[in-house]
């Protein structure tokens, strides 16, 4: 944004931290989709989400970072582990976690990555923004939610209630249909 924007290389110290965290996030995400043990996939997901929360912290979005830790690392992964346990997934190494179309999936994913990375690099390679701490603090974000975004917030609460009731109805066996 400014005229004195530093070049893309060497990275600033913030960018070094961000690149390290990003490397951890991408590497553990890669392990999530390639590991042969389903419980390990859930645990690598914790590492990936944690590194992403660190990325949010570096980007000064601290409230989003803590929400990420609370909901993703805390709740979502525990939910996934319960799902693994309840579906009696094979604990330990199992060879049939991948379906037969790995090659096609690899081609599609590589194509997606190529297109997205070229587009993004072509579009934003010159954009630099200095990081100002405190932009994503809970105070300013909360004021923003409850002043400007209160209608989507309420709609979201209704959606969450509907999802809750739906999950209960789906998972209880003694609530049958009226047939």
């Amino acid at each position: 944004m400014t005229a004195a924007a530093p070049g893309l290389w060497p990275p600033t110290p913030q960018e070094v931290v961000f690149l390290f965290l990003g490397l951890v996030a991408a590497g553990s995400a890669l392990l999530v989709v390639t590991t042969k043990q389903i419980v390990h996939a859930a645990l690598w997901l914790v590492v990936s989400f944690g590194a992403l929360a660190g990325c949010y912290l570096v980007l000064t979005a601290e409230f989003v970072a803590w929400v990420q830790v609370l909901i993703y690392v805390g709740a979502v992964v525990v939910l996934l582990l319960f799902g693994i346990m309840l579906t009696r997934a094979p604990i330990g190494r199992s060879a049939d976690l991948d379906s037969g179309n790995r090659i096609a999936a690899l081609v599609v994913a590589a194509g997606t990555a190529a297109v997205l990375v070229t587009t993004v690099v072509a579009g934003f390679s010159q954009v630099y923004t200095p990081l100002v701490p405190g932009q994503g603090a809970a105070g300013s974000l909360g004021a923003s939610i409850f002043r400007n975004w209160v209608l989507p917030f309420e709609a979201l609460s209704v959606l969450l209630l509907a999802a809750l009731i739906g999950a209960i109805v789906l998972s209880r066996t003694d609530i049958g249909g009226k047939d």
Binding site: L8, P11, T12, Q14, E15, F18, L19, G22, A25, A26, A29, L30, V32, V33, L52, C55, V58, L59, L97, D98, S99, N101, R102, A104, A105, L106, V108, A109, A110, T112, A113, L116, V117, V120, V121, F124, S125, V127, Y128, T129, P130, L131
Partner: peptide, 24 residues
């Protein structure tokens, strides 16, 4: 912070997710 770093990381994560959805 160059915007291209988080954007490229997001693109890579998205592609990894695409691979996982299709291959798992």
């Amino acid at each position: 912070m160059h915007v291209v770093y988080p954007a490229v990381l997001a693109a890579l994560l998205f592609s990894i997710g695409v691979y996982g959805v299709l291959a798992r």
